[in-house]
Design a protein around this nucleic acid. Structure first.
Lengths: 213, 213
DNA sequence: TAGATTGTTAATCGATTAACAATC
DNA sequence: TAGATTGTTAATCGATTAACAATC
């Protein structure tokens, strides 16, 4: 009787972590795990783990626990792992290139197929297997190529405009590294990364946590 | 009568965002702002903004609102912006180099002073202004140089070991990009970045949010 | 002064934890 | 069967929102 209600964002953000720990367990050869033990490893309560997993149906078995590979596989499926995505990058500067390479290096099936940049001196260069095109050609590209995910790595000022172009062109997911919060349109999802914000959370704790227990 | 109680993590994570919006407002020449209007821009309730700001003392004025530059300055101070930090990077591969350049490109005063890598063919190379040293020399480096923040960009397997070395050596903050959760020791703070996890949250929403109203 | 807007207390909402009957 | 451990309901905790008196 598991709820298909609406999975809370808190749960969604923990899913990739579950996947990471389960993958590790599978690698170590562990075939079954209890919520208790998984909680210990992940630093969560057993109760929370059972609640989280129950959002997606009945995956455990009383008296036994969870089958590691089965649970991992199910979460992988929920997260959309194992599918191939068509990915482009807008902004082929420092960040755009780094993320392009980064994505290529992970074991994810997310290869960048093209980059776009306004700087004409960059046009024609290659980053990994992908070529850099002029940003002017982006709308045309979108009409002739399917793009699932676009990475935005432009300066802050250009980001929302580019995002609008991408969403108009049918891109359904934006992964934004520009230091502005991109507003999503209906039918499109956005993750704003804000690495700098994360670094400031680090310095905050370094300076303000009293000797850190 | 503002509380110095203990600022919740939810509030801390919003602080850099406040700073970003206030910086933008200051650039636009806005000198004062109400919680109402700031909330509108940031997508938060006015109530929440007042609650958040109140964690840090009385910064507004009834009938007026908040002075943009004053509030921005105070938050900058709380976050430790404007200080200079001694930063090193361990792992000079794809991610380590990218983050080194990235940090150099932000307007933050966070310059990487040295990188370390186990691959001896990389030793002696430069990334921006910083040289790559052998990871074997890391403990010695830590005894002769002050390091505030270390970025970890090693493979997953090496990350916790390196983190332990760094914490032993007196580094007080770790910014971890390896795909494992680093456990902090007392006196040290850690931010685990997990870019891949973030990408999977994106694909989750792309696949599971019903037409995304 | 009157109007605006904060600081702060109280009410609500949602997420986490605890408890336990169901069941493998 | 007895023991283990889930699925699920209830209790608790914390964060967000609402309300309003204080005050600029």
């Amino acid at each position: 009787m598991a709820g298909k209600d609406k999975v809370s964002e808190a749960v969604v953000r923990r899913l990739p972590t579950y996947h990471r720990y389960l993958e590790r367990l599978a690698q170590e050869g562990t075939t079954r795990i209890s919520s208790q033990e998984l909680g210990q490893r992940m630093g969560l309560t057993a109760s929370q783990i059972r609640q989280d997993i129950n959002c997606f149906g009945t995956l455990g078995q009383q008296g036994y626990g969870y089958n590691v590979e089965e649970l991992r596989g199910r979460i992988a499926e929920i997260l959309g792992l194992g599918r191939a995505y068509h990915v482009i990058v807008v902004g082929a500067g420092n960040i755009g290139r780094a993320v392009t390479n980064y994505v290529g290096f992970t074991r994810l099936d997310f290869a960048v197929e093209a980059l776009f940049d306004v700087d004409s001196t960059r046009v024609g260069e290659r980053v990994g297997d992908a070529e850099i095109f002029s940003t002017h050609t982006l709308p045309a590209y979108l009409t002739t190529h399917r793009v699932d995910i676009s990475i935005i790595a432009t300066p802050a000022e250009a980001a929302q405009g580019i995002a609008d172009e991408l969403m108009e062109g049918g891109v359904r997911a934006l992964w934004n590294f520009a230091p502005v919060d991109i507003a999503a349109k209906p039918g499109c999802v956005v993750q704003n990364v804000q690495l700098t914000d994360n670094l400031l959370v680090l310095t905050y704790h370094m300076l303000n946590d009293p000797a850190e227990q």
